[in-house]
């Protein structure tokens, strides 16, 4: 079962996407949208896919990650460019770790659907805390473009919000895939699969189910925080509480994971590709109607492939030479 070869498929897919984005004019934007969606799917998959638990507060982790970077760039930029960026990533990770330790520590005592219910509203809670207590600019958020231009110059600001931010998203996306592959091949992965399939059975095998759930949850959340820091704060140069805690990202990430195949390495890649491309081109072809078309389409795909597209292909590929490259 131990194998890192599906990682080759994953890296190849990223290379092709980047090549398409760079060589065909007008394609960079949709490619980055796809990679963003793959990344949020991949980070959620570490928890949802591996444990079977649904984290409805997922976007909150992207949000606090965005704030971590925002706070560093907005309030501590006199440190100089590189130290500030490093601080931003560290803050994003620490905030996500903190939130996940607290939320997980409390909510992971609940099983299955009760956990999902307990996590609903985590994003709203943090949003209203920031707005109500006027933390980090409150409801006005953190607007970075002026600050960045003043501290680092317009040229650097443009570089940060374009090339650097995109590269950051790609690096985090790939790192998330590598982490997933590592977990799938590790003792942690076996423990998670056991508890996903049957928590009772995992216990009698001697697995500390609470600990492993918490570890998977925290890894997933920190990765989400880093995505928020790059794909939102760096790229958009602002952080608004209404935007970074919007529940639709949670729902989209869940859809991507289920569509592609929960608990598989390549699932979020396929799910993200299908979802983001459909969303992007439907919005162009049928402006305003995209959700009306997307929703039934997703229902059909999920009905046809209950274990996700990758789950289905992996089943078909068993015994063939492709087997090692699909997981």
């Amino acid at each position: 079962m131990k194998s890192y070869s599906p990682l080759i498929t994953l890296l190849l897919a990223y290379l092709i996407m980047i090549a398409i984005g760079q060589s065909i004019p007008g394609m960079w934007q949709p490619v980055m949208l796809v990679i963003f969606y793959i990344a949020i799917g991949q980070a959620l998959n570490v928890f949802l896919g591996m444990t079977g638990y649904v984290n409805f507060g997922y976007v909150a982790l992207l949000g606090v990650g965005a704030y971590g970077m925002g706070v560093a760039l907005g309030y501590y930029n006199e440190l100089g460019l590189i130290p500030t960026l490093i601080l931003g990533f560290i803050l994003a990770a620490i905030l996500a770790l903190l939130v996940s330790a607290i939320v997980g520590g409390i909510a992971l005592r609940l099983r299955g659907a009760y956990f999902a219910i307990a996590t609903i509203g985590v994003n709203e809670g943090i949003k209203y805390l920031i707005m109500g207590a006027k933390i980090w600019g409150g409801s006005e958020g953190i607007v970075l473009s002026g600050i960045l231009r003043k501290s680092f110059g317009a040229e650097t600001m443009r570089f940060l919000s374009t090339t650097f931010a995109d590269a950051g998203v790609i690096v985090v996306a790939i790192a998330t895939g590598v982490v997933t592959a590592y977990i799938l091949n590790s003792r942690l992965g076996y423990a998670l699969i056991a508890l996903r399939e049957d928590e009772e059975a995992a216990k009698v095998m001697g697995i500390n189910v609470t600990k492993y759930k918490q570890i998977a949850f925290m890894i997933s959340c920190v990765l989400a925080g880093l995505i928020g820091a790059t794909a939102w704060t760096l790229k958009l140069t602002y952080v608004f509480p209404q935007d970074v805690f919007a529940i639709n990202y949670t729902v989209e990430a869940i859809v991507i994971v289920m569509l592609g195949g929960a608990g598989t390495l390549l699932g979020p890649l396929v799910g993200g590709l299908i979802y983001a491309l459909l969303k992007y081109y439907l919005a162009i072809a049928f402006p305003g109607l995209q959700l009306l078309i997307l929703a039934p389409l997703l229902i059909v795909v999920i009905l046809l492939f209950p274990e996700g597209v990758v789950g289905y292909i992996a089943k078909k590929a068993r015994g063939t030479r492709l087997e090692n490259f699909v997981r």
Binding site: E197, D198, A201, K203, V204, G206, V209
Partner: peptide, 24 residues
């Protein structure tokens, strides 16, 4: 002592209803 520590000590449980991994 939590269950996973007891398994380390050499105690285990065959749960009611078997709790196998049916797809493995």
């Amino acid at each position: 002592m939590p269950p996973h520590k007891k398994v380390e000590l050499g105690i285990t449980l065959v749960p009611e209803g078997r709790h196998l991994f049916p797809n493995m």
